[in-house]
């Protein structure tokens, strides 16, 4: 099946006084219709940046400096602002972390839903309002017919995030970009919102790019997952494979350092050091200073995504050509 979204070799740069920072470098992936792709990584890995680039909302001075983004086979990375506006909402819905800043505090949630529905679906006011109430019911807002005239501040955090989900879905987009949709919520509310998002995406056949730092949310929701590190994809593959049998040393370290709920461990696995700053990304593989498996090739040559079993990992361990160097590896595990 042709992918709904295709990102090819995406590169995002931030020009600064001290030179150009490369925030994303060579990011490529695709999302099939109806598929949920999870994107995980630590702060600064570029996961939110990838989402922002796709919906055309990169914060200036950030800019797409290379690569292509295709939606249904058509490029959307080079569109003018007003053309992109028509795609945002209609073709790609967005859900952000903080539901309070997503909603306009001066309009009722009904007005905001009606505006979106009328703009994108061209319905008249009465019909749009009926739809708005229907959406609020669908996302589980009690007494939707009355609540439609409430202002965002009259809702709790969890209810607001439900409104945001209704707003993202109401123009029936084919793709949802959800950036940390549950991070601002408490764990019991988080479970409700995940269940809702998953159910709606399945029922409507909507594709989703789910950006989060919470591996549990990904494990429950996503079909495939991309692990990002320092602006690059370290590993991408079916979620089960990546969680259970991570191939890239970074994904392996990341999975191991998650504290288990079912037992107490004396010493948690940790990855020493920290992710490099954008201004000081090391040569070769960006993970090489922290990698327990590092060898000579990692220090000079940057690995591309290499197929290994069911997943693809950007790691020289999985290149047949570097295998013969492995014995003389300078391991400092």
């Amino acid at each position: 099946m042709a992918p709904l979204l295709e990102v090819r070799d995406l590169r995002v740069e931030f020009p600064t006084r001290r030179g150009i920072l490369t925030a994303l470098d060579g990011v490529s992936f695709s999302i099939a219709p109806g598929e949920v792709l999870g994107v995980v990584g630590e702060s600064g890995a570029g996961k939110s940046m990838t989402g922002a680039a796709i919906i055309g909302l990169l914060e200036p001075p950030g800019r797409i400096a290379g690569g292509q983004i295709l939606l249904n086979g058509k490029r959307i990375d080079n569109l003018r602002y007003d053309q992109m506006r028509r795609i945002r909402g209609r073709e790609i819905g967005a859900i952000f972390q903080d539901p309070l800043t997503t909603l306009n505090p001066l309009y009722t949630v009904g007005e905001q839903l009606v505006e979106t529905i009328r703009t994108h679906l061209g319905l008249d006011g009465a019909e749009a309002r009926k739809r708005a109430i229907g959406w609020l019911e669908m996302v589980g807002i009690p007494a939707a017919a009355q609540r439609v005239d409430s202002y965002p501040h009259e809702f709790s955090g969890g209810m607001r995030q439900r409104v945001v989900i209704a707003l993202a879905l109401c123009a029936e987009p084919k793709l949802i970009v959800a950036d940390e949709p549950t991070t601002a919520l408490d764990v019991s509310i988080q479970a409700q919102v995940i269940a809702l998002l998953k159910g709606l995406a399945r029922d409507k056949g909507t594709s989703m790019m789910l950006v989060t730092h919470d591996m549990g949310v990904i494990a429950e929701t996503a079909d495939r997952v991309a692990v990002m590190y320092a602006g690059r994809i370290a590993e991408i593959g079916p979620v089960r494979e990546v969680v259970k049998h991570p191939k890239h040393p970074y994904s392996a370290g990341l999975m191991a350092s998650i504290p288990p709920l079912d037992r107490k461990v004396e010493h948690l696995a940790q990855i020493d050091g920290a992710m490099p700053r954008l201004s000081a990304i090391p040569r070769g593989c960006a993970f090489n200073p922290r990698c327990p498996e590092v060898f000579a090739r990692c220090l000079v040559e940057r690995p591309a995504l290499l197929a290994t079993g069911a997943t693809e990992a950007a790691c020289w361990l999985y290149d047949a050509a570097s295998e013969k160097h492995a014995p003389e590896a300078m391991r400092h595990g």
Partner: peptide, 24 residues
């Protein structure tokens, strides 16, 4: 029990979680 139930499952047992309803 509800708090423990609400934590997403990394083991992917396919278990259907029943989120606690309502809010604090």
């Amino acid at each position: 029990r509800a708090l423990m139930e609400a934590i997403p499952d990394l083991e992917m047992t396919g278990r259907q979680r029943i989120p606690v309803g309502g809010e604090v």
